[in-house]
Design a protein around this nucleic acid. Sequence first.
DNA 1: ATAATAAAAGTCAATATTAGTCAAATTAAA
DNA 2: TTTAATTTGACTAATATTGACTTTTATTAT
Lengths: 155, 155
Amino acid sequence: MQSQNISDIIEKYLKSILADSQQIEIKRSEIAELFNCVPSQINYVINTRFTIQNGYVVKSKRGGGGYIRIVKVNLLDDSDVIDDLINMVGDEIDFNKAFQIIQSLYQEGMLTRRESNLIISSIDKRTLAFENRQIEKIVRARILISILNRLRYDD
Amino acid sequence: MQSQNISDIIEKYLKSILADSQQIEIKRSEIAELFNCVPSQINYVINTRFTIQNGYVVKSKRGGGGYIRIVKVNLLDDSDVIDDLINMVGDEIDFNKAFQIIQSLYQEGMLTRRESNLIISSIDKRTLAFENRQIEKIVRARILISILNRLRYDD
DNA sequence: ATAATAAAAGTCAATATTAGTCAAATTAAA
DNA sequence: TTTAATTTGACTAATATTGACTTTTATTAT
C-alpha cells in the first residue's frame, strides 16, 4: 500500500534500527546491495531523510574500512536550541525542512500534537502558494521564526 | 439513475472503498486508466468532492512511488461555525479582525491560550510585514483559513 | 618512506516517475 | 440562453533513480 519506493523502504529500515540504538554505522555498499540499488541512492536517502532538522547527524569516512554513521541527536541538549533552529530557518525555508523542524519540536515535547498540526497547516505549501515562488519560502520562514520566538516565553 | 458523468462515478468508487476503511491510497494514473479518463480528472474529482468541508483530508506525493491518499476525518460539531468564520475572513483580513476571531475561538474553548498565542504571533503585523500592505492581509487570510479548516477535525 | 593501487564514500547531472495546474473546449443545468 | 459543471490535454513541479566521475583513506609494493 504505502512506501512503494526504495528510498522510503531504506529510510524505514534504518529508522527501525535507530529505534533501538542511539546510532547506526553502515557500509554504504552493503546497504545498497541489500536493497538492490546503486550506492548513491543511500546518499539520497540520507540527504533527504536524515538531516539535522530531523534530529540526525551523519558522519562518514571513505577508503578501506569506510562507513557512514548516523547518530540520533537530542536538540534540547543544547540550551539555546531556539537560536539554533532560527538560524536553520534563515531567510527562507521550504516546507519539508520546516516540517522536520516542527516534527522535532514535537518529539522533544516542546509542542503538543495539536499545536504542531496547526502550525503545519499554517505553513503548508497550499496555504502559502503565491504567484511568486520565493515569497512562499520567505513567509514560511517568517512565520516559523515568529513561532520559535514565541516558544521562548510561556510554556 | 443519476451520476452519469465520470466524476460522479469515480467519486462513488472511491467512497465505496472509504466506506470500509478510514483511508485510501491511490495511484492517480491507475485510477485514470481504470476509468478511462485523463489523470487530471482525478484531481478534479478530489478538488470538488473530497474537500475538508465534506470530511476528507488529502495528501499526496509525486515522483517514484507517488500516491494520493484520501483520509476520512471526523468533523467536529463546530464545523459549521467554522464555515461562518471563514466567510468572515474572506480574501484578506487585517490584524485586528483576525485577532478578534482568534479571541472568540479561545472564548469558545476551541483553542487553548497557548494555541491562540502561537497563532497570533504567526499572523502578527510584524511577522507579515511586506512592502505591499495588501499582501500582508492576503497572507493573513490564507493562514487563518487554513487554521480554521484544521480545527474542523481532531488528531 | 614513497609511490602505486585498491577500497571505500561523495557529487552531480541526466533521466524517469509520479502528481498538480490552468485554461480552453465541451456538456449539462437553470 | 446563460451559467455552472465537467472533460481534456499541454505544460509544470516534485521526487526518485541511476551512473559516470571525483575525492578521500587505507593498503601494498618498491
